[in-house]
Computed example of a mutant assay.
Amino acid sequence: MLVAFAVPTPAAAAPVGSFTRQALYAGLSRIQANELQGKIDNYIQTYGGRQISANQVEFDGGLYTATVPGELAVRNLSAAAAVDNCTYAAPLYSGWFCAYRAAGYQGDILQWYNCGRYNMPWGGTGSWINNQTQGTPAYLLNQNLSVVNQSFAYAANLSFNWTPVWYVDVCY
Protein backbone atom coordinates (compact mmCIF):
# COMPACT_ATOMS: atom_id res chain seq x y z
CA MET A 1 0.00 0.00 0.00
CA LEU A 2 1.33 3.38 -1.02
CA VAL A 3 0.66 6.30 1.31
CA ALA A 4 1.21 9.90 0.19
CA PHE A 5 2.11 12.62 2.61
CA ALA A 6 1.68 16.29 1.95
CA VAL A 7 4.93 18.05 2.65
CA PRO A 8 4.41 21.62 3.85
CA THR A 9 6.27 24.18 1.84
CA PRO A 10 7.52 27.45 3.22
CA ALA A 11 5.18 30.36 2.66
CA ALA A 12 6.10 32.27 -0.42
CA ALA A 13 7.81 35.55 0.30
CA ALA A 14 5.68 38.61 -0.25
CA PRO A 15 6.28 40.12 -3.66
CA VAL A 16 8.77 42.95 -3.65
CA GLY A 17 7.59 46.20 -5.25
CA SER A 18 9.88 48.22 -7.49
CA PHE A 19 10.47 50.92 -4.85
CA THR A 20 11.28 48.30 -2.22
CA ARG A 21 13.71 46.68 -4.68
CA GLN A 22 15.25 50.10 -5.22
CA ALA A 23 15.68 50.57 -1.46
CA LEU A 24 17.19 47.10 -1.02
CA TYR A 25 19.55 47.70 -3.94
CA ALA A 26 20.65 50.95 -2.25
CA GLY A 27 21.72 48.90 0.78
CA LEU A 28 18.73 49.28 3.08
CA SER A 29 17.69 46.34 5.21
CA ARG A 30 14.22 44.87 4.64
CA ILE A 31 13.10 46.54 7.90
CA GLN A 32 14.44 49.95 6.80
CA ALA A 33 12.83 49.56 3.37
CA ASN A 34 9.47 48.73 4.95
CA GLU A 35 9.68 51.62 7.44
CA LEU A 36 10.65 54.00 4.65
CA GLN A 37 7.72 52.84 2.52
CA GLY A 38 5.47 53.43 5.53
CA LYS A 39 6.68 57.04 5.77
CA ILE A 40 6.05 57.54 2.05
CA ASP A 41 2.60 55.91 2.20
CA ASN A 42 1.64 58.06 5.20
CA TYR A 43 2.75 61.25 3.44
CA ILE A 44 0.78 60.41 0.29
CA GLN A 45 -2.31 59.41 2.27
CA THR A 46 -2.22 62.68 4.23
CA TYR A 47 -1.04 65.21 1.63
CA GLY A 48 -1.33 63.53 -1.76
CA GLY A 49 1.29 63.18 -4.45
CA ARG A 50 2.88 60.40 -6.45
CA GLN A 51 5.81 58.25 -5.36
CA ILE A 52 8.70 58.63 -7.82
CA SER A 53 11.46 56.76 -5.97
CA ALA A 54 11.96 54.74 -2.80
CA ASN A 55 12.17 57.92 -0.72
CA GLN A 56 10.53 60.66 -2.82
CA VAL A 57 7.03 61.92 -3.49
CA GLU A 58 6.28 64.40 -6.24
CA PHE A 59 3.32 66.71 -5.66
CA ASP A 60 1.94 69.72 -7.49
CA GLY A 61 4.63 72.34 -6.96
CA GLY A 62 7.36 70.30 -5.37
CA LEU A 63 8.94 67.25 -3.78
CA TYR A 64 8.98 65.47 -0.44
CA THR A 65 12.14 63.48 0.28
CA ALA A 66 12.24 61.18 3.31
CA THR A 67 15.30 60.14 5.25
CA VAL A 68 16.09 56.48 5.56
CA PRO A 69 15.06 55.28 9.05
CA GLY A 70 18.05 55.67 11.36
CA GLU A 71 19.80 58.28 9.19
CA LEU A 72 19.99 62.06 9.63
CA ALA A 73 20.28 63.28 6.05
CA VAL A 74 18.41 62.35 2.89
CA ARG A 75 20.26 60.46 0.23
CA ASN A 76 19.65 59.64 -3.39
CA LEU A 77 18.10 56.20 -3.74
CA SER A 78 17.49 56.68 -7.47
CA ALA A 79 18.11 59.06 -10.31
CA ALA A 80 14.43 60.07 -10.43
CA ALA A 81 14.98 63.58 -9.05
CA ALA A 82 17.56 65.67 -7.28
CA VAL A 83 17.74 64.89 -3.58
CA ASP A 84 18.20 68.49 -2.41
CA ASN A 85 17.72 71.52 -4.64
CA CYS A 86 18.96 74.03 -2.07
CA THR A 87 22.23 72.99 -0.38
CA TYR A 88 25.79 73.41 -1.61
CA ALA A 89 25.34 70.80 -4.33
CA ALA A 90 22.56 72.86 -5.97
CA PRO A 91 23.20 75.93 -8.11
CA LEU A 92 22.71 79.30 -6.45
CA TYR A 93 19.22 80.70 -7.15
CA SER A 94 17.98 77.30 -8.32
CA GLY A 95 14.36 78.43 -7.93
CA TRP A 96 13.56 76.25 -4.90
CA PHE A 97 12.56 76.85 -1.28
CA CYS A 98 13.54 73.93 0.97
CA ALA A 99 12.24 73.14 4.45
CA TYR A 100 14.14 70.61 6.56
CA ARG A 101 12.55 68.66 9.40
CA ALA A 102 15.72 68.97 11.55
CA ALA A 103 18.25 71.70 12.27
CA GLY A 104 21.41 71.89 10.20
CA TYR A 105 19.64 71.12 6.90
CA GLN A 106 19.02 67.54 8.06
CA GLY A 107 16.01 65.24 8.11
CA ASP A 108 13.11 64.95 5.70
CA ILE A 109 12.91 67.74 3.11
CA LEU A 110 9.97 69.55 1.55
CA GLN A 111 11.02 71.39 -1.59
CA TRP A 112 8.78 73.82 -3.47
CA TYR A 113 9.40 75.25 -6.91
CA ASN A 114 5.99 76.52 -8.02
CA CYS A 115 4.49 79.63 -6.48
CA GLY A 116 1.77 78.81 -4.00
CA ARG A 117 0.72 78.29 -0.41
CA TYR A 118 1.72 74.93 1.05
CA ASN A 119 0.97 73.18 4.34
CA MET A 120 3.82 72.77 6.82
CA PRO A 121 3.34 69.28 8.27
CA TRP A 122 5.87 69.32 11.09
CA GLY A 123 6.81 71.32 14.17
CA GLY A 124 9.86 71.54 16.36
CA THR A 125 13.33 72.69 15.42
CA GLY A 126 14.21 72.45 11.76
CA SER A 127 15.88 74.63 9.14
CA TRP A 128 15.22 76.17 5.75
CA ILE A 129 16.92 77.58 2.65
CA ASN A 130 15.34 80.10 0.30
CA ASN A 131 17.19 79.37 -2.94
CA GLN A 132 14.54 80.76 -5.28
CA THR A 133 15.54 83.23 -7.98
CA GLN A 134 17.42 86.22 -6.60
CA GLY A 135 15.30 88.46 -4.39
CA THR A 136 12.19 86.23 -4.51
CA PRO A 137 10.28 86.24 -1.20
CA ALA A 138 9.07 83.36 0.91
CA TYR A 139 6.70 83.84 3.83
CA LEU A 140 6.24 81.45 6.73
CA LEU A 141 2.72 81.93 8.10
CA ASN A 142 0.89 80.94 11.27
CA GLN A 143 -2.65 79.52 11.48
CA ASN A 144 -4.11 83.04 11.14
CA LEU A 145 -1.98 83.71 8.04
CA SER A 146 0.17 86.22 9.92
CA VAL A 147 3.84 86.31 8.93
CA VAL A 148 6.11 84.41 11.32
CA ASN A 149 9.17 84.89 9.11
CA GLN A 150 9.97 86.31 5.70
CA SER A 151 13.06 85.96 3.57
CA PHE A 152 14.32 86.96 0.16
CA ALA A 153 16.50 84.64 -1.91
CA TYR A 154 19.20 83.79 -1.15
CA ALA A 155 18.65 83.30 2.59
CA ALA A 156 18.94 80.42 5.03
CA ASN A 157 18.26 79.55 8.65
CA LEU A 158 20.27 76.72 10.22
CA SER A 159 17.95 76.39 13.25
CA PHE A 160 14.33 77.46 13.02
CA ASN A 161 11.23 76.72 15.12
CA TRP A 162 8.58 75.26 12.79
CA THR A 163 5.96 74.91 15.53
CA PRO A 164 4.11 78.21 14.89
CA VAL A 165 4.31 77.77 11.09
CA TRP A 166 1.23 76.29 9.44
CA TYR A 167 1.88 77.43 5.83
CA VAL A 168 4.71 78.34 3.52
CA ASP A 169 4.04 80.92 0.80
CA VAL A 170 6.58 80.51 -1.97
CA CYS A 171 7.33 83.41 -4.36
CA TYR A 172 4.50 85.78 -3.40
Score class of each variant (00 low, 15 high):
92 L>C: 12
111 Q>G: 02
62 G>V: 03
134 Q>G: 09
93 Y>K: 07
88 Y>K: 15
145 L>I: 08
101 R>Y: 11
142 N>H: 10
17 G>D: 04
72 L>T: 10
96 W>S: 07
110 L>E: 08
146 S>G: 13
137 P>K: 02
52 I>Y: 08
23 A>E: 01
170 V>A: 04
156 A>D: 08
16 V>Q: 00
47 Y>A: 08
79 A>P: 00
34 N>S: 05
24 L>T: 05
80 A>Y: 00
157 N>F: 07
51 Q>P: 00
103 A>V: 02
105 Y>D: 01
5 F>H: 03
160 F>I: 11
77 L>T: 08
69 P>V: 03
78 S>L: 10
50 R>K: 15
71 E>A: 00
127 S>D: 05
34 N>V: 03
114 N>V: 10
136 T>S: 15
43 Y>M: 03
4 A>W: 15
16 V>E: 01
71 E>I: 00
114 N>W: 10
100 Y>S: 06
72 L>C: 03
56 Q>L: 03
106 Q>M: 14
32 Q>N: 13
133 T>K: 04
134 Q>K: 04
10 P>N: 02
86 C>F: 13
110 L>R: 03
160 F>W: 12
114 N>H: 11
129 I>M: 13
132 Q>C: 10
120 M>I: 13
113 Y>M: 10
20 T>V: 15
103 A>F: 01
144 N>F: 15
102 A>I: 08
30 R>K: 12
155 A>Y: 04
154 Y>C: 03
28 L>M: 14
33 A>Q: 08
53 S>C: 05
71 E>M: 01
124 G>K: 04
145 L>E: 11
139 Y>L: 13
51 Q>F: 01
16 V>P: 00
10 P>T: 02
166 W>A: 13
142 N>L: 11
118 Y>Q: 02
7 V>S: 05
17 G>T: 11
19 F>C: 06
115 C>G: 14
101 R>Q: 14
167 Y>K: 00
91 P>T: 11
67 T>G: 00
30 R>H: 07
44 I>P: 00
24 L>W: 02
90 A>Y: 03
83 V>T: 13
60 D>F: 01
51 Q>R: 00
37 Q>C: 02
34 N>R: 02
139 Y>N: 06
48 G>R: 05
163 T>D: 07
138 A>V: 15
33 A>K: 07
55 N>T: 09
82 A>R: 14
90 A>D: 06
49 G>Q: 11
162 W>A: 10
6 A>T: 14
149 N>A: 14
98 C>T: 15
113 Y>R: 12
52 I>Q: 01
13 A>T: 08
143 Q>C: 10
36 L>G: 00
20 T>R: 09
95 G>N: 07
73 A>T: 15
165 V>D: 06
106 Q>R: 12
35 E>R: 02
70 G>C: 07
101 R>L: 08
19 F>I: 05
161 N>S: 12
128 W>A: 11
154 Y>V: 09
144 N>I: 14
27 G>N: 12
150 Q>S: 15
66 A>E: 05
124 G>M: 04
120 M>L: 13
163 T>P: 02
60 D>L: 07
32 Q>M: 10
113 Y>D: 05
95 G>C: 04
168 V>H: 01
37 Q>D: 02
11 A>T: 13
52 I>A: 06
13 A>R: 12
60 D>V: 08
150 Q>I: 03
15 P>Q: 04
99 A>V: 10
152 F>D: 02
119 N>I: 11
